[in-house]
Design a protein around this nucleic acid. Structure first.
Length: 756
DNA sequence: TGCAACGGCGCC
DNA sequence: AAAGGGCGCCGTTGCA
């Protein structure tokens, strides 16, 4: 028998909280929000400075749904409860209603998509004249769901508190010029020329990235959308030419800071029309990734946090209007964010490092690297042939067509056809036929086909990923760097401070941070130039030694000894094993995997691991310190000031991520800081081609090689502080005629090279 | 045909 | 009981 859970709270409340339906605990105690979700709500209310007694708390449906499944209510039931809710809220007349979760949002406003609308201030369609603030349902924030969104609930409740002062809606200026005449365009571009900054946002089609229109906002609450691009029929040829000319004047005017959300995209689109846009003073996405690295950096999210404009990204049917709103909102976001940067004293980092690095990376993306296209085509032919032969051999050996790239077919082949013992992925615990599994099977159940399978997979990877990568028409390979992960893949956000490298928006180019050495011979310097690679040597190990404050390790590094050889003698193993043990153990690896990567037995591996901790006890201390820091506030800060909050379950998995985080991001930041410094020091003397996490690839004229290498050594090896102690990371400089055959620099190699 | 999820694998 | 982390791209598969 369904029991009705009545609302609770103050009938004169200015804030009404509306959930979906009672749960088990609520039904038992006949009160809304008293179970686990209720606890979360209470915590969030406290954090937002709202007293529960000052709220009226209710649910859309007052009875617990069978199996807690809201969908089991039919339309009639829902209508009944919605009517009851309308009467209820109209009696209370709160200044603001908080819709907690999808069902409440839907009942109160008719909208759907709570993750999009959270933070938005909306008109209630259920109770006319009343104002709704949308928030995620507390049950959605339980530890096993999405605990990292808790702060968003707090934020939305704070917003509700502000809005509870009156029934009025916030005023949101939106002066939009969506279909301007030619004269209006010129007039507004003239006005823009008088202003110190200008928001820029272009719209393109999704596939070709063909330009559709350009939006500008040179003052608050105002925007103009100028239709332009290959399919634009608005202007005469002459008008269009003049608009581009005036536009270029604004976009390249020294006095006008250009501002945008992920403005690198707009710069890339407009490059063919106006060249490089300059100066770019502020990117809201980059600023946000600096201030709140663990949050999403989409404009939709920024809008919900920094402005009171409601979510608008779902209606794109009027593109010009949409373009204008984007600009107006970006300006509002920009103003708030620039204040936040000043308040947090991040100006030096943001304007002096983040934005310059962004500019340099954008130029590197344009510049690209010359490719030996001949060689590339030849090896394509060769590898294709090898693939065909391997395929034939494998099919002949197994007696049927086997696609080694199909996990499904491979699992069937190994575990059903050959009836071998099933191997699982250690992390996911799922059945796998990956390289590791096959290698293990090859030991227990030798079969000549295994080697061929792995070889074939390798060749297919070589061909598809590296050899077939699309070179631009000018024979150059390009990449797009991401400092934030705005175009995130699989919903993962990069959080390390490392750059990501990927294909460009037009589909050419590739990730240039994972090229196997043997494929690097395709990468050439331009005519008359020489490649210079500067590598931070053993950077992560070094940083770990300083972070842990391990005197023994620091001593080896500072004396310039061969770290791994010395560790090898201490641990009583050969150099290679010692290297793996140290590296793996530093990052939380345990005996099983250590034994796998070293070839030792698990018992031996464990012995060496413990011996390493005994030899360098500070390493274990360091790890324990990280653990307690995470337990205390889930936050780690690197020596270079990068901060990261860790969400999710406290445990070894998080600890391992945390061990890796600080050295990884410290090295990345240190390299990038030096990339900026090098760029300005060597301006005109060299071209920066690539950044690969702990190394940079440059090209320069051989006559300035000395200058270049001196600058590299001077800048990159300068000491910086880790835990109050100065640490210097040596640089290994290599030079070469292609990126594969690089020789460590010393005087004789230069001379030999110059003679050639 | 396009898309998302997944398995697999390249480098630092 | 056992467990490095961080990225992006390709091919397959299943679904719309």
């Amino acid at each position: 028998m369904a029991r009705i859970v009545p609302p609770v709270g103050n009938h004169k409340a200015n804030i009404a909280l509306v959930g979906e339906a009672p749960g088990k605990e609520e039904e038992l105690r006949l009160k809304p929000f008293v179970g686990p979700a209720g606890n979360i709500l209470d915590r969030a209310l406290r954090a937002a400075g709202i007293s529960r007694d000052a709220c009226y708390i209710t649910n859309v449906v007052k009875v617990r749904p069978p199996n807690n499944d809201f969908k089991s209510f039919n339309m009639q039931d829902l209508e009944y409860w919605k009517n009851a809710l309308r009467d209820e809220l109209n009696r209370i007349q709160p200044n603001v209603i908080v819709a907690l979760g999808e069902r409440a949002l839907n009942a109160l406003t008719g909208m759907s998509g709570v993750l999009k609308y959270r933070g938005s201030i909306l008109y209630s369609t259920l109770c006319e004249g009343l104002k709704v603030v949308c928030a995620e349902h507390p049950a959605f924030l339980l530890p096993n769901r999405n605990p990292s969104d808790f702060h968003l609930l707090v934020f939305d409740l704070q917003r509700a508190k502000e809005e509870s002062l009156s029934k009025d809606f916030p005023t949101l200026p939106r002066e939009m010029l969506t279909n301007p005449s030619y004269e209006e365009v010129l007039h507004h571009l003239d006005l823009a020329l008088e202003r110190p900054d200008c928001i820029l946002d272009v719209e393109t089609d999704r596939k070709q990235k063909a330009l559709l229109c350009i939006g500008l906002s040179y003052k608050d609450g105002h925007a103009i959308c100028i239709p332009l691009g290959p399919s634009c029929k608005v202007w005469t040829e002459q008008e269009e030419l003049e608009i581009w000319r005036r536009l270029q004047k604004v976009l390249t005017c020294e006095r006008i800071g250009k501002i945008g959300q992920n403005i690198g995209f707009d710069m890339t689109i407009l490059y063919r029309y106006v060249g490089e846009i300059y100066p770019v003073s502020f990117d809201t996405m980059l600023a946000h990734s600096l201030l709140h690295i663990e949050d999403p950096h989409s404009l939709a999210h920024l809008t919900s946090i920094y402005t009171k404009y409601p979510y608008y990204k779902s209606d794109k049917e009027n593109l010009w209007e949409y373009n204008c709103i984007d600009c107006i909102v970006t300006r509002a976001v920009y103003k708030e964010m620039s204040k936040e940067i000043d308040e947090h004293d991040m100006g030096r980092v943001f304007y002096g490092y983040t934005m310059p690095l962004f500019k340099i990376l954008w130029r590197m993306e344009r510049f690209g690297c010359r490719i030996d296209t001949n060689k590339k085509e030849l090896s394509a032919v060769e590898v294709k042939k090898e693939i065909e032969e391997l395929k034939k051999a494998i099919n002949k050996e197994v007696g049927f067509e086997l696609n080694v790239n199909s996990p499904k077919q491979m699992q069937h082949f190994l575990y059903e056809y050959l009836m071998l013992p099933v191997k699982r992925n250690r992390k996911t615990r799922r059945v796998t036929a990956d390289e590791n599994a096959i290698n293990e099977l090859a030991v227990s159940h030798p079969n000549p086909v295994f080697d061929k399978v792995l070889e074939l997979r390798g060749k297919i990877k070589d061909l598809s990923t590296y050899i077939d990568a699309k070179v631009d028409k000018d024979g150059r390979m390009r990449t797009a760097y991401s400092m934030t992960g705005a175009d995130k893949e699989d919903n993962r956000l990069p959080v390390t401070g490392r750059l990501a490298s990927r294909k460009g928006i037009y589909g050419s180019g590739m990730d240039l941070q994972n090229i196997p050495t043997r494929h690097r011979s395709m990468f050439l310097p331009d005519d008359g130039m020489i490649l210079v690679e500067a590598d931070l040597s053993q950077a992560e190990n070094r940083v770990v030694a300083y972070l842990a404050g391990d005197e023994k390790q620091i001593d080896i590094f500072e004396r310039g000894g061969d770290f791994h050889s010395i560790m090898a003698t201490w641990l009583g193993k050969d150099r290679k094993v010692a290297k793996s043990i140290v590296h793996g153990t530093n990052y939380g690896m345990k005996k099983r995997l250590l034994s796998q990567i070293t070839g030792l037995s698990q018992g031996e591996a464990e012995d060496v691991r413990l011996k390493y901790f005994k030899t360098c006890p500070k390493i274990a201390h360091w790890q324990l310190g990280i653990q307690s820091k995470l337990k205390a506030d889930r936050t780690l800060v690197t020596p270079l000031g990068r901060r990261r909050v860790f969400f999710g379950m406290l445990g070894d998995e998080m600890f391992r991520r945390a061990y890796a985080y600080i050295p990884q991001s410290t090295v990345a930041d240190w390299l990038n800081i030096n990339l900026v410094a090098l760029y300005y020091r060597l301006k005109g003397k060299c071209d920066v081609l690539l950044q690969v996490h702990d190394s940079v690839l440059l090209q320069c004229n051989p006559d300035v090689l000395d200058d270049v290498i001196n600058a590299i050594c001077e800048l990159m090896q300068r000491p910086f502080k880790i835990h109050g102690r100065m640490c210097s990371i040596p640089v290994e400089v290599k030079i070469g005629k292609n990126w594969c055959d690089m020789e460590t620099f010393n005087e004789t190699t230069v001379e030999r090279d110059l003679v050639r």
